[in-house]
């Protein structure tokens, strides 16, 4: 690996990771604002604020959801398109992060990073569309295969075993979808590293994956697993800390944001791996 490739390290760019976290947090605030407004309208004047909603037992919460069912469902429906648009628009901060990490020792700065991200947007969007379609097909095929396996064996194996067999049949398709995701990220790295268009980047990404699928797959998988564990752990803690304001709420918020930031950092770490695997075209030639 050349020194330029070695430079692609997430830990060297904490501000860039913070930038992505800031983007996600801002959008999350926007998406959650209608729900918060609904709650504030109902409980804002309570001496303890919305604390009753988060008291163990959930009586007040269930009462609010039942009473404001239409508002709650409208809120959820309103948040969904925000999230979808944000997912697409999120290509820019992600690409900016990758541009920063691929800076080859010369960090481009905020303006340079964003400009790089914008330049990469079209190619990234094309890759996103192709990858989404391919993954949806793979998931659909897996679901259908699982359904067939379960239906064919239900009478013979019984319900539980047949469903477990169906899950086992679906597993390879999930691995395929994961492999598609890894290839997608490698293709993104090609866009940043080699200024490739969507199609060329896809070819380069696929080639990189084919060259070392096990190592790349493991590198992605352990990070994906590590990003889920804190979600479960902190979730279990949340109820023990919940229903309270003040310092307890601050502590919970810190824990939650620690989880979110950690997940962003792990994602950045993986993208840095992808960048290191996709050397710029001129370096590839000189390395040979």
């Amino acid at each position: 690996m050349t020194s330029e490739q070695q430079d692609a390290r997430a830990r060297k760019h904490p501000l860039a990771i913070l930038g992505v976290w800031t983007w996600e947090t801002t959008l999350a605030w926007i998406a959650s604002w209608p729900a918060v407004s609904l709650v504030r309208a109902a409980y804002g004047s309570h001496p303890r604020g919305d604390a009753p909603l988060w008291t163990p037992g959930a009586h007040a919460l269930l009462d609010l959801l039942w009473r404001d069912m239409h508002g709650a469902s409208a809120t959820a429906r309103g948040a969904a398109p925000v999230l979808v648009v944000a997912a697409i628009a999120g290509l820019v901060p992600m690409a900016s992060l990758m541009v920063t990490m691929a800076g080859a020792g010369r960090t481009p700065g905020l303006v340079g990073s964003v400009a790089g991200g914008l330049r990469a947007f079209l190619a990234m969007a094309l890759l996103l569309a192709i990858a989404t379609a391919a993954e949806a097909l793979a998931l659909g095929a897996g679901a259908f295969a699982a359904y067939l396996a379960e239906a064919w064996t239900h009478a013979g194996l019984g319900e539980a075993r047949a469903q477990q067999l169906g899950a086992a049949v679906a597993l390879p398709f999930l691995v395929l979808v994961a492999a598609m995701g890894v290839t997608h990220d490698l293709a993104r790295a090609a866009v940043v590293r080699r200024s490739a268009g969507g199609a060329r980047a896809l070819v380069a990404g696929a080639a990189a994956f084919r060259a070392d699928p096990v190592s790349l797959g493991w590198s992605w998988a352990w990070r994906a697993t590590a990003s889920m564990a804190p979600v479960v752990l902190v979730g279990a803690l949340a109820d023990r800390l919940g229903g309270h304001g003040g310092a307890t709420l601050v502590l919970l918020a810190l824990l939650h944001q620690g989880v979110v930031f950690g997940r962003v950092a792990l994602r950045a770490s993986w993208l840095a791996v992808a960048l290191r695997r996709l050397a710029p075209a001129h370096l590839d030639a000189s390395a040979r």
Binding site: T25, A28, W29, S32, A35, V36, V39, R40, Y43, G44, S45, H46, P47, R48, G49, D50, A51, L53, W54, A238, G242, G243, G245, L249, L252, A253, H256, Q257, V259, V260
Partner: peptide, 13 residues
């Protein structure tokens, strides 16, 4: 009143 700080925190998360 107490506002809705817990919901803001959780909904954001």
């Amino acid at each position: 009143g107490g506002g809705a700080p817990l919901t803001l925190e959780r909904a954001t998360y």
